[in-house]
Each structure stands twice: as C-alpha cells, then as structure tokens.
C-alpha cells in the first residue's frame, strides 16, 4: 500500500472513471468502528436507522476482510479464520459489486476505512479513494481543533470534498460535449440527482467553463471508442 506519496495533494484529482455523478453514499470509519463521516447523495432505500446501518456496514467490511484473508489462494500460511488482523496484514479486498451497487473500499495503515457506494457499472475508484484519503490527512488530521475519533466537522474538508464530487460532474459534462462533437447523432442526457448544495443542481455551460478554468488542466480527450 502506498499512501505516502508526499504530503501535498496532487494538483489534479484523478479522473473519474464513473459514467456520471452516480454516487450513492460515502462512509469513513476509524479503526474502532466509529463512523467519522457519512454522506448520502442518492439513497431511496433505508432499511435501518443510521446507527444500525453504520454498524452493519462496518461489520460487513470486517468480516469480508477476514474472509478474503482466509481465502487467499496465493499464500501458504493463512492463519485462522476470524482472528483480527492489522491493517495491511493478510489479503484484503478493494471492491465488490452487486446488481444494484458497487462498493469501493480502502483502508489506511492507521485503520481509517473509506467506503464509496456507487452505481454498479462504475470503474476502478482506488485512485479517487486515495485522493479522498489525502484530503482527510490534509484537512482533518492536520486540523489542530480536531479530536481524533470524533465525527469530522471541518469546513475545509467538507468544501473540498464537495468540490471534488462536483468536479466529477464537470468532467462528465466535458466528456458529453466531446461525445457530441464526435458523434452528433448521439443524444446525451445527464441526470443530476440530489446534490449536496443547491448550486450544484444545475451545471450550465457557463458554470462548467468557470469551474473548468479553476481546474488545472483537462486531460487529453479519450478516444471516441473508449468505453464509458
């Protein structure tokens, strides 16, 4: 695991592989299973109350980790099933997919777990998770007023996180423009679901250009036949 690629946040966040702003939820847990942050963008189905939901999510990740550590077909000595393992020890997992959602998971050496729940056809989000972890280090851990182990209430972290997710949307608008330029026959519809701030709910051309300029650079356009 490489998380220590310099303390500076990379100037351009990793490109979203997602085909849209299709995030459902995000969780951050510490190593004791306390939910430090919970964000929800689009979640029509609530089966449990919030506290029970966080507990169940942490339990699922914990058990899946012990399952993958035991199932690892490449290591000879796997230890016993259910024995707690330190972060980074044993075979872990980075995502799982069901027919309705995809869960991407990252654990830092200190046991911080970051979980993103997205649309099932989302691509690999490991880079995005690392980027969010870097944001956490910069704006939460380095905040002198933050007490470790308490829910995160840092304005800078919140706003940067919002900006990151918004930039996903902007990238998508740019991609859509590109697609229309290459294949004028393709109708492109962008559905914007519940946004965190009211000003996110519209992404006009003007606005997209504005935020586009605040980004450092746009990466080279993908080839038209690349999959979304």
């Amino acid at each position: 695991m490489q998380f220590f690629g310099g303390s500076e946040i990379s100037p351009s966040p990793p490109l979203p592989t997602a085909s849209g702003n299709n995030g459902h939820m995000m969780y951050v847990f510490n190593r004791n299973g306390i939910c430090l942050l919970y964000r929800e963008w689009n979640r029509p189905l609530h089966t449990l109350n919030a506290q029970q939901d966080h507990k169940l999510m942490f339990g699922l990740l914990f058990s899946l980790k012990s399952l993958t550590a035991k199932m690892d077909p490449t290591s000879v000595d796997k230890g016993n099933l259910g024995v707690p393992q330190l972060p980074g020890q044993g075979c872990s997992f980075h995502s799982f997919r069901t027919n309705t959602y995809k869960l991407s998971f990252m654990e830092s050496p200190s046991g911080i777990k970051i979980i993103l729940v997205t649309h099932p056809r989302t691509g690999d989000l490991r880079e995005s998770l690392k980027y969010i972890y870097n944001l956490y280090v910069e704006y939460v851990v380095k905040n002198p007023l933050y007490t470790p182990g308490t829910p995160i209430r840092c304005e800078l972290f919140d706003s940067t996180l919002d900006q990151y997710f918004r930039s996903h949307l902007i990238h998508m608008v740019e991609l859509a423009k590109l697609m229309v330029a290459h294949h004028p026959s393709f109708p492109v519809t962008i559905l914007i679901t519940t946004a965190t701030k009211p000003d996110n709910s519209t992404a006009t051309d003007n606005q997209s250009r504005l935020i586009h300029h605040s980004c450092h650079h746009l990466p080279p356009p993908p080839s038209p036949d690349s999959t979304l």
């Binding site: 459902h24 939820m25 689009n42 979640r43 029509p44 189905l45 899946l64 993958t68 199932m71 690892d72 075979c91 872990s92 997992f93 980075h94 995502s95 799982f96 997919r97 069901t98 027919n99 309705t100 959602y101 729940v117």
Partner: peptide, 14 residues
C-alpha cells in the same frame, strides 16, 4: 441504496 438487490456478484480482492 436502492430496491431489488440480489447480493454480491463479484468480490475483487488483492
């Protein structure tokens, strides 16, 4: 997060 989930289809471990 949505209705109609039928469980894990693919788990990607290291």
């Amino acid at each position: 997060p949505v209705h109609g989930c039928s469980g894990i289809e693919l788990l990607e471990a290291d």
